[in-house]
């Protein structure tokens, strides 16, 4: 049985300009102990989708799903109290901005210890010992002295390590890492990524890694979902996606990788992800798609079959060439 089952997850925000659908039909299964990556440009609804799983969206968000189940428990129906027993304990999440994600008024030791107290009911001495252990596990030197440090006394990389220590405090079954390295120096990025993968393997937890960087995907994930403007446009194993991307958007993201470049200038995808007010009719990617034709601008595509990675496209690519599904065979 899957650890996390998501079927047709949608999130709509009430805004002044009316309802805005930030996540539109995401379906995903995560098995225990695997690394799944969610990839897409900024504004694709990656964060919102995972915040919906955590139950952390503001009140203006309206979440619907055919299935939203964690370890057999229906998250949509769970009372808030019960859900809080899962969140922070069995599912944990770390964020893009480690510096502002820690509370400036409390010490590192307090903020980690708080999780241990809330979920495990540990006493003072036990909390202290366990916190030192956790800080050691995330590679913070001189852990004992760090207990009384305040967030403003630490670097970004150090803060993210503390966030990770906090997240793994109760040995979660699933860790969601939302662009954990985006805000960090390049040299630190690789260290944090390595740490996450190491902890994931040691502890056998599942890891959802949100990123906009296909390079990160290649290094870490076993499976990928590609998200664009709130929609899931492709779902594949990392190998399959890198070997033969079926959605033009995935292909474009891959083409932008430095190691895949065929020219000196990196190809970038022209245009930006549509927001609330500039949603095109038909396929949402059509205005930026190199292969778009009349139908794409008129009608939203249905997902292709699983042999084509459920690509959300009228003419998914096969070997880089658009084909009409069914017609080819």
């Amino acid at each position: 049985m899957s650890l996390l089952e998501i079927r047709n997850l949608c999130v709509e925000f009430e805004t002044r300009g009316g309802a805005f659908r930030a996540v539109d039909g995401v379906s995903l299964d995560i098995d225990p102990g695997e690394i799944v990556s969610i990839v897409g440009e900024s504004g694709s609804g990656k964060s919102v989708a995972m915040l919906a799983v955590m139950g952390l969206l503001p009140r203006t968000a309206h979440v619907t799903a055919d299935v939203l189940r964690f370890a057999g428990r229906d998250l949509m129906r769970l009372p808030a109290r019960e859900r809080r027993r899962i969140v922070g304990r069995e599912i944990a999440m770390i964020f893009q901005e480690p510096m502002s994600s820690l509370n400036p008024c409390f010490t590192v030791g307090f903020q980690i210890g708080e999780v241990l107290k809330t979920h495990l009911g540990l006493g003072r001495a036990e909390r202290r010992a366990r916190t030192i252990e956790l800080l050691g596990a995330v590679g913070i030197p001189d852990a004992e002295r760090r207990l009384s440090a305040f967030p403003h006394q630490m670097s970004g990389g150090m803060s993210q390590r503390v966030m990770i220590a906090m997240a793994i405090a109760c040995n979660p079954k699933l860790l969601i890492a939302d662009e954990p390295t985006t805000a960090l120096d390049v040299t630190i990025q690789a260290q944090i990524l390595d740490l996450l993968v190491k902890l994931q393997q040691e502890r056998g937890m599942a890891l959802v890694l949100i990123t906009h960087d296909m390079g990160v995907v290649a290094e870490t994930a076993q499976r990928v979902i590609v998200q664009y403007a709130g929609q899931q446009v492709e779902k594949a194993t990392t190998r399959e996606l890198f070997r033969d991307p079926h959605h033009p958007y995935s292909a474009a993201l891959l083409a932008a990788l430095p190691e895949r470049a065929t020219t000196k200038v990196l190809p970038s995808i022209p245009g930006v992800v549509p927001g609330q007010y500039d949603r095109p009719q038909g396929c949402l990617f059509a205005p930026r798609c190199a292969h778009a034709f009349a139908l794409c601008h008129a009608k939203a595509p249905p997902p292709a079959g699983s042999e084509l990675s459920e690509a959300l496209c009228h003419t998914p690519l096969v070997g880089g060439v658009p084909v009409v599904p069914g017609a080819a065979a």
Binding site: V87, G88, S101, L102, N103, F106, V115, T118, H119
Partner: peptide, 26 residues
């Protein structure tokens, strides 16, 4: 609206603690 309030909620802390300690203190 701060990130650390979201972190406090992501830790599964009760709302009274999130509001009364993490938010109010700041």
């Amino acid at each position: 609206e701060e990130d650390y309030v979201r972190t406090a909620r992501a830790k599964g802390l009760p709302p009274l603690r999130v509001i009364g300690l993490h938010a109010l203190r700041n």
